[in-house]
């Protein structure tokens, strides 16, 4: 029973972070039609920025806020400097097929990942370093028993809950959010309706960048920080997004929690070594049983 509770708690906390990673991927997919493989490289980079600030005597919260803001900034910069020119129809018209054209930004995102990891290695050296948590990582004690739930878990879940509520309010309750949903549905008609789709695209990258930066800040206290730390998180987040439906933000969150539980139960009841295998199995099963994901729409696979 204790193991079961531990698995549930750990799965919820981990799942919340993967939900964030998956949400970041879904936002860029919907907003720009790109699977952004650089996403957790961006998060790694901004976590390093926070780490440096904190190591130089600033408070955790300064590092926290700067990481989120620079996450949004880095996302926007990548879109404007790299993705926008690459998506320019005139410049890529020599490449005859549409599928080739759709693949270019995705390959570019892999390139960006490589550049960010190399840069981080050059600037901060490639050895692992710790990253602080703003709350205790020991379990609460109730009636003398140590519970499998920590203050940091509460912090993680609170952060993710706030992010999800804010994002959903933004999309449901603001004009800009409506414009972004419309652009995701049909870019051509959105353009004809006077939406500046370049701006909504960049905004997708910014929100996704900030969300993934938050995921980086929440993941690294329990692992360590190195240029490659967050690679696995991208893989898990991607699987979560596919399971939930690549074009559905709610699906992404659902997928995140499913993956969190799967990983947690495999870790507690089997062995952590099998986690990777379990994720692959989930990805494969999901693609066989429900290729468009739990909440995704059927005609989404373009790439």
């Amino acid at each position: 029973m204790d193991t079961f509770l531990s698995a549930i708690f750990s799965g919820t906390s981990r799942g919340a972070i993967f939900a964030l990673v998956a949400l970041g991927l879904v936002l860029v997919w919907r907003g720009a039609g790109i699977v952004n493989f650089a996403q957790m490289g961006q998060a790694m980079f901004t976590t390093y920025i926070a780490s440096t600030l904190i190591a130089n005597g600033n408070s955790y919260w300064i590092g926290f806020v700067v990481a989120l803001v620079s996450g949004a900034a880095l996302g926007s910069i990548l879109d404007v400097l790299v993705m926008r020119p690459l998506s320019n129809k005139k410049k890529t018209e020599l490449l005859s097929s549409d599928s080739m054209r759709a693949a270019i930004p995705v390959i570019a995102s892999l390139g960006i990942l490589g550049v960010l990891q190399a840069l981080a290695g050059i600037i901060w050296a490639a050895e692992e370093r710790g990253f602080p948590a703003p709350a205790k990582q020991e379990g609460f004690t109730v009636a003398g028993n140590v519970m499998p739930f920590t203050a940091f878990d509460v912090f993680v879940i609170t952060c993710v809950a706030i992010t999800l509520i804010l994002t959903s309010l933004f999309f449901k309750r603001t004009g800009m959010g409506l414009a972004m949903r419309a652009t995701a549905l049909n870019q051509e008609v959105a353009k004809l309706s006077g939406i500046r789709t370049n701006r909504t695209r960049t905004l997708s990258w910014a929100i996704s960048g900030a969300a993934s930066s938050l995921a980086g800040l929440l993941l690294t206290p329990s692992s360590n920080l190195s240029p490659n730390t967050l690679d696995l998180a991208l893989f898990i987040g991607f699987t979560a997004a596919v399971v939930g439906g690549l074009d559905s933000p709610v699906g992404a969150v659902l997928g995140g929690f499913i993956l969190g539980m799967v990983i947690s139960f495999v870790t507690f009841y089997d062995t952590p070594e099998d986690v990777f295998l379990a994720i692959l199995a989930v990805l494969l099963l999901s693609l066989i049983i429900r290729p468009h994901g739990i909440l995704g729409s059927k005609d989404v696979r373009r790439v």
Binding site: A179, R181, A182, L185, R199
Partner: peptide, 25 residues
């Protein structure tokens, strides 16, 4: 208006009409 209507299938009628207001202009 657009030839062939051009409504967003994933948005409600009200939201579609709101899109006409040029929100990001």
């Amino acid at each position: 208006t657009l030839q062939g209507v051009g409504l967003f299938s994933g948005l409600s009628v009200l939201e579609n009409v709101m899109m006409g207001a040029d929100i990001t202009s």
